[in-house]
Design a protein around this nucleic acid. Structure first.
Ligand code: ZN
Ligand code: ZN
Ligand code: ZN
Ligand code: ZN
Lengths: 132, 132
DNA sequence: CTTGACCCTGTAGTTGCTACAGGGAGCATA
DNA sequence: TATGCTCCCTGTAGCAACTACAGGGTCAAG
């Protein structure tokens, strides 16, 4: 049994974040001490670790919730899990492609700037409509 | 002169977003008709286009605000503009690198899943702590 | 004169936290 | 016992950048 602060240190999570996860139903309300302090067992530690690792991999809290409930139910097969992971991966791919396109646009813009007065800065021009 | 709806269509911006930009001081309060409708001139159209293009390129509203005030002032030279653009570019590069690392982790995880019962799904295992 | 498309203000919701404010608990030290 | 100090409690509000109502008013067409 450990306090919320100890759990936070063990999982690299702020205390407020842990309470937030409890509030939104991602973590079960833990037992309390006589002084009304939360105490966490190893299962809670494992669960929070799972959540944090999933978050680090970019899954949304809703996706994490889904993954948790699938493991809780011990569902027959892992098709849904795979589905969630693959969907997320596709989203990451899209983001990468978007950002690479963006980088290209930005670098073209930046390279065109020769310094000097702002009224002839190519960056500003590139951002402005009705170029002339 | 055009209505807020027309301006929205011309710049691919939702009406609520335009009002939001006004509220936070990014767009000046426009003139009003007798019936209290906002009306926008070409300058407002140009300004909103600039904002939208900057946003599409991923600049934050604070950065957009800075870019706008620099052009408004007709500042001597464009050093600050270039600085903002380069900072943003560096941020994009960081995001790309992060996402590529993420994609690698995710794809390793996903490929390891052979289908079957969730209790032996490698995705879940990869997310769980204390692997054994 | 009614219908429908548009506009108005003001407020609250979204995501995933983070930061107080204003108190209580628990332990060590003087 | 008193005084700190660190931790914990609840509840609320803030961040970015919108988005979505609710409950009305305006205006042109038919
Ligand atoms: Zn995702
Ligand atoms: Zn320049
Ligand atoms: Zn940026
Ligand atoms: Zn699997």
């Amino acid at each position: 049994m450990r306090s919320i602060g100890a759990l936070g240190k063990a999982t690299n999570t702020k205390v407020e974040t842990i309470r937030y996860y409890e509030r939104i139903g991602l973590l079960a309300p833990p037992q309390r001490t006589d002084g009304n302090y939360r105490t966490y067992d190893d299962e809670a530690l494992a669960r929070l670790s799972f959540i944090r690792r999933s978050r680090d991999l970019g899954f949304s809290l809703d996706q994490v919730r889904a993954l948790l409930s699938l493991t809780d139910q011990g569902t027959q097969d892992c098709k849904t899990v795979d589905r969630i992971a693959r969907d997320h991966m596709a989203e990451i791919e899209r983001k990468i492609a978007d950002l690479i396109a963006l980088r290209h646009e930005l670098s073209t813009m930046i390279e065109s700037c020769g310094g000097g007065n702002i009224s002839e800065c190519r960056i500003i021009e590139a951002l402005s409509p009705f170029d002339n």
